[in-house]
Lab assay of single mutants.
Amino acid sequence: MPVRRGHVAPQNTFLDTIIRKFEGQSRKFIIANARVENCAVIYCNDGFCELCGYSRAEVMQRPCTCDFLHGPRTQRRAAAQIAQALLGAEERKVEIAFYRKDGSCFLCLVDVVPVKNEDGAVIMFILNFEVVMEKDMVGSPAHDTNHRGPPTSWLAPGRAKTFRLKLPALLALTARESSVRSGGAGGAGAPGAVVVDVDLTPAAPSSESLALDEVTAMDNHVAGLGPAEERRALVGPGSPPRSAPGQLPSPRAHSLNPDASGSSCSLARTRSRESCASVRRASSADDIEAMRAGVLPPPPRHASTGAMHPLRSGLLNSTSDSDLVRYRTISKIPQITLNFVDLKGDPFLASPTSDREIIAPKIKERTHNVTEKVTQVLSLGADVLPEYKLQAPRIHRWTILHYSPFKAVWDWLILLLVIYTAVFTPYSAAFLLKETEEGPPATECGYACQPLAVVDLIVDIMFIVDILINFRTTYVNANEEVVSHPGRIAVHYFKGWFLIDMVAAIPFDLLI
């Protein structure tokens, strides 16, 4: 008679799926529990143990900040960024110097990925580790590398530091407007667009060049630039800015003055950032001319202004700041037409079709709590990747769950009947059967004279019903998954307890 339990259901295979997918890609990662103190490590794979030199037993239950890997060259700011990422709910990448158990130093890129439950609360953290440099290539500990984003994938490793954006290309926007319009339909740009040429040739750093990471940081200074100062900065030398009595002219307006920039070969870094931020506020060169004239017309309804409409929906549905990093990277690809469009465009503009998908598509409701890094690593669709929660398995109709209350009560009843059979069957065979043979035949009273025979008949009927119930009862397979398919249940029961239950259900007393 089957006594099969499996009270692990309803099970959740999400954690096993993450481990299996990460292991298949030869990654070095740990999984931490966000619900406990210090976000203790609950799993670390073999790749991480080989990377740091510690065994799994030495890593388990330690804080996922990996303070046991810190050393003299470990930056405090990087460690603080990892700790801050564990307090938030967004994906974050941090470069930090770690030390192995043998004392060797290596520069590592740590990717902190939160995993949320159905309520939107962070319950786990996945920390992925990628070695960037070994100890002989690690720089000085005073050099802070965590304020910069990861290198873009479309640049060669040897040319990542030679990417320079020439400031004269930004200063000569109005001069290039006529050349853009003359391109017409034969050019790649839309009317009114501004073409910015980027020099990728390796050259020595000069005062006129600005690194790509500095251009990325310009967006942080746009908020500090007032509207009046932006307007004066875009007017140009024809209309000098008016300053109040006793007030000095704005240095932001002076930063885009061609006369002032041409007199000296070098520009201050602050002026460069502010000038680029001011130019980015204009949607095209037409807006710059309109600002000089004193009238700013409404933005025209053409394809170039609607190019950012799908980007707005993608940004609203993005799951991490990696989408913004990807957008900034692609927006700086050289030799393309940049349409400086305000994100607050007309909502009635139709979304044009684009061959290049900048932001990841909208994630469906079932995966809105899973970050983009987890979705990318697992390579699963929205119909396959579940949320991290207890999910009731989908069972067929008329199927009994093996952990249901009805099955528990039924098993206790069958257990009592088995005990009765084990006690009274030998007793009936030894004593009652002998008395029946010696006594007179009682054929007239039937079952009324033999109450134990009636009980034995009921017990046999219950055993037959138990066999039928076992054909529709779920079970737990070797992978700790609840199986509810009727065919698989029948095959599993035939290979197991079916023969024993059938022999126990045969009414031998009635056959004798």
Score class of each variant (00 low, 15 high):
residue 183 G to H: 10
residue 323 D to K: 08
residue 331 S to F: 04
residue 43 Y to A: 01
residue 61 Q to V: 03
residue 141 P to E: 10
residue 310 P to W: 10
residue 321 D to E: 11
residue 360 A to L: 12
residue 300 P to V: 15
residue 164 R to G: 14
residue 147 H to F: 04
residue 117 N to V: 09
residue 152 T to H: 06
residue 278 S to D: 05
residue 66 C to G: 01
residue 16 D to C: 06
residue 108 C to M: 01
residue 367 T to E: 09
residue 129 F to L: 05
residue 183 G to A: 08
residue 32 A to S: 06
residue 349 L to S: 03
residue 177 E to R: 09
residue 250 S to H: 03
residue 343 L to K: 05
residue 358 I to H: 11
residue 127 L to M: 11
residue 20 R to D: 06
residue 329 T to L: 08
residue 298 P to A: 06
residue 157 P to N: 07
residue 356 R to C: 12
residue 170 L to T: 11
residue 100 R to N: 04
residue 52 C to W: 15
residue 258 P to V: 09
residue 90 E to D: 13
residue 32 A to W: 01
residue 199 D to I: 01
residue 168 P to K: 03
residue 93 K to E: 13
residue 41 V to C: 03
residue 349 L to P: 09
residue 119 D to S: 08
residue 173 L to T: 15
residue 127 L to W: 01
residue 282 A to K: 14
residue 303 A to W: 14
residue 129 F to N: 01
residue 7 H to R: 07
residue 177 E to A: 08
residue 332 K to M: 05
residue 157 P to R: 14
residue 253 A to R: 11
residue 102 D to A: 01
residue 38 N to T: 06
residue 283 S to M: 04
residue 143 H to F: 05
residue 22 F to M: 10
residue 323 D to T: 09
residue 257 N to S: 11
residue 93 K to M: 09
residue 253 A to N: 05
residue 363 I to W: 10
residue 156 A to H: 12
residue 306 G to E: 12
residue 16 D to T: 06
residue 77 R to Y: 12
residue 16 D to I: 11
residue 2 P to A: 05
residue 258 P to G: 14
residue 188 A to V: 07
residue 324 L to A: 14
residue 201 T to S: 15
residue 35 R to Q: 14
residue 226 G to I: 15
residue 158 G to D: 05
residue 174 T to V: 10
residue 81 Q to C: 06
residue 162 T to Q: 08
residue 310 P to E: 04
residue 350 A to L: 07
residue 328 R to S: 14
residue 122 V to W: 01
residue 197 D to R: 01
residue 351 S to W: 07
residue 175 A to N: 15
residue 201 T to N: 06
residue 270 T to F: 14
residue 374 V to H: 15
residue 92 R to E: 15
residue 169 A to F: 06
residue 87 L to Q: 15
residue 314 G to C: 10
residue 124 M to G: 03
residue 30 I to K: 01
residue 331 S to Q: 07
residue 165 L to C: 11
residue 22 F to P: 02
residue 188 A to I: 06
residue 214 E to Y: 11
residue 193 A to Q: 06
residue 304 S to K: 12
residue 70 H to T: 07
residue 218 M to N: 06
residue 333 I to W: 07
residue 363 I to N: 03
residue 236 G to N: 03
residue 55 S to M: 04
residue 371 T to K: 12
residue 176 R to K: 06
residue 266 S to E: 14
residue 255 S to Y: 05
residue 269 R to L: 11
residue 78 A to E: 10
residue 262 G to K: 08
residue 218 M to R: 13
residue 262 G to H: 15
residue 266 S to Q: 07
residue 371 T to M: 07
residue 313 S to E: 07
residue 241 P to H: 15
residue 291 M to A: 15
residue 210 L to D: 08
residue 123 I to G: 07
residue 297 P to L: 09
residue 263 S to D: 07
residue 251 P to F: 03
residue 41 V to I: 13
residue 223 A to E: 09
residue 372 E to V: 04
residue 355 D to N: 12
residue 265 C to A: 15
residue 266 S to K: 08
residue 269 R to N: 11
residue 349 L to N: 14
residue 372 E to D: 04
residue 132 V to L: 06
residue 334 P to T: 01
residue 271 R to I: 15
residue 82 I to R: 01
residue 261 S to M: 10
residue 127 L to I: 07
residue 344 K to Y: 05
residue 271 R to C: 13
residue 150 P to G: 15
residue 337 T to C: 12
